[in-house]
Design a protein around this nucleic acid. Structure first.
Lengths: 203, 203, 203, 203
DNA sequence: GATGAATGAGTGTTCATTCAT
DNA sequence: TATGAATGAACACTCATTCAT
């Protein structure tokens, strides 16, 4: 609707996720959006309000996505059919961990989390707690169905997610977020995931 | 040697590792050291030179440490005796990943790596490449000796290190670096390491 | 007539008289009136025009009041009957010096008079010249009638008015214009007035 | 000692007392002192600190002066000799109410007192309470010595001071503080003082 | 070795005002 | 009548740095 405000948010996300909040000035954002500095204050109370709105929007989007994924999981017809990964982790990986918008936010969170306690909480939740909880649920279900060997599903989730997290960190900070590097991330991650499932699958 | 210079470096490391390079002003450092702002320029060309010297010193220390560890590995009497982990990973974990000085630097690197290409390289080297290479070597040796099952030693290193890296990230950014939180990190890591070796050991 | 315009004037007078012209922003006024900032320019050419209209309105009102008081004085039946003060100064005191609307304007004038030559003139006229002239006339008449001792009526006016002016300054700036403080002003003033008349009355 | 700091204080007093605190910008002060805007922050923490130091200095000076005056009063040899006014009020009038430095501060206080509670207190103390208390003491002493008629010394002080306060307000805000206008103030005040003493003197 | 004093470039923010709708 | 959107000019303040002493 409000075109300028959206432009500001987009520009701010790009710049913040590249350089961090404090290294980006209002002037920088306005230069990109092609408005005067004072104009930004018509749309936002102050610089921090832009940052807040960015995070708020992300949390809304991500909450929604994870809700869908979890519902899909619990309402899925059993026995699970076809490829194991596809039924469980593909969406989470492609639509969350590798989504362009989410990646920018994650980079931003990674840059800013230590500055600010609130951001730290959001970072912890969306980078550690939520992914690990989700995978724990997935593995619990797969165990119930006898698809993977019985084990501590929480530790399993850590073993599954930690390498992905490591690859993701490398991908997010290898410079700019180009498709080429993204592909390397994807391959590293898929190699791991395949290996992982080979090890834990029953037969 | 030069007392003031050392004080400046210590204060700078403390402050930089807590708040990041740009969020710490020359004023802040001088307040801690109790000198005037202009005095700092007698010891350092500019603000960045402090940062550079900090990293330089770390790299010297860390290079030295890793050299020692690697030499100990290759010159060790075979067959390896006693506890597996002690012989290989304990020192690396306690004297590098958990060392107070190294932790401050790692926090600093984690905060700053995205800002600057040179820092990025140092970060990648000391946080990813070096640890993974070291573990790869360790696992190669252990395989040669038949102590652990044969496998892709590089992937093994990733599976070993990734959870430790994840726990370390949580530890480094849980707020201030207190002993209490450090202990949590240690326990998480040791649990994983024990589990890991149980899985890969030959019998 | 024009409701919004009147609301703006009321809000502006309240705010200006509390905080001064320049400390009150168009935003502040609009917040009170519940209109958008640009709307104010439909009713007034600019911020100063609000201020001007406020003063203009006051001057009309005050001119009218003083005219009435002076006419009442000159057309009064002689000899003056009854309480001396009631016949002369009561109205002036209660309907001008203590009137809520006039007080707001006086506070505003007191705050702004030094900023601007035109305001200074209005201030001087309504705070000093007019009251002193009025009292001078009153005392001249009272002398003519033999009610008070013969003296320099101008100096008499000063001796009469100066303490009232002093009390008024204290009342106008004791914080917000509450009834409690107003009463203190009234008592201080009446004490003085009674004392004063005791001294100057012929027996 | 510190030349620049003193220049800043002088310039600030001149400007603040002419235009008020908020109407004077750091730029304005620096222009007068011929330094760059950032330099001012070497000498003062912020804009308000200049204002504070100005008032602080005035209070020190004025406290000192009033102490001296009061001591002179209580330690004077009795019976008081010579001209009544000289012995009591001359110094207070010439060295306080008419002192150039004090006048600037008083103008400043008069302009700013309504903005800020702390300033209001200082204003009330030095413009109302202190002068009235001092005169009350003076008149008490003069009564004890039988030099003036017995009366309520507090009300006497008000009757004495109020016209002076009124003339002073006129003098302080007649535009710039020129010697010509100062002389008018002095004459108005002295006329009143002489009249006043004629009325209250015994005999 | 240390510091008092100064500065240029930049920062986020406020404000009165304009103008098309 | 009212407002959404924009803007130029100003403001207080911070910071890394310089340089003479």
């Amino acid at each position: 609707m409000n075109e300028t405000k959206q432009k500001i948010l987009n520009a701010a996300l790009d710049l913040f996720s590249q350089n961090g909040f404090s290294a980006v000035s209002i002037r920088d954002i306005c230069k990109v959006v092609a408005i005067k500095e004072s104009s930004i204050y018509y749309h936002f109370k102050n610089k921090h309000a832009i940052f807040d709105e960015l995070l708020q929007h992300f949390e809304a989007i991500a909450t929604d996505l994870m809700l869908q994924l979890e519902q899909a999981l619990t309402t899925a017809q059993k026995p699970f059919e076809g490829n194991l990964f596809e039924k469980t982790c593909y969406c989470f990986f492609e639509e969350y961990l590798m989504d362009e918008y989410c990646n920018k936010i994650m980079r931003l969170l990674s840059i800013e989390h230590f500055h600010n306690n609130e951001v730290q909480k959001i970072y912890d939740y969306w980078i550690f707690d939520k992914p690990l909880n989700f995978q724990t649920k997935v593995f619990s279900l797969l165990m119930e169905e006898g698809i993977i060997k019985t084990a501590d599903s929480k530790y399993l989730a850590t073993k599954f997610y930690a390498p992905i997290f490591l690859f993701m960190q490398q991908w997010l900070f290898r410079g700019t977020l180009t498709d080429e590097y993204k592909q390397i991330f994807r391959e590293n991650a898929y190699d791991h995931i395949n290996n992982f499932f080979n090890e834990v699958e029953n037969n």
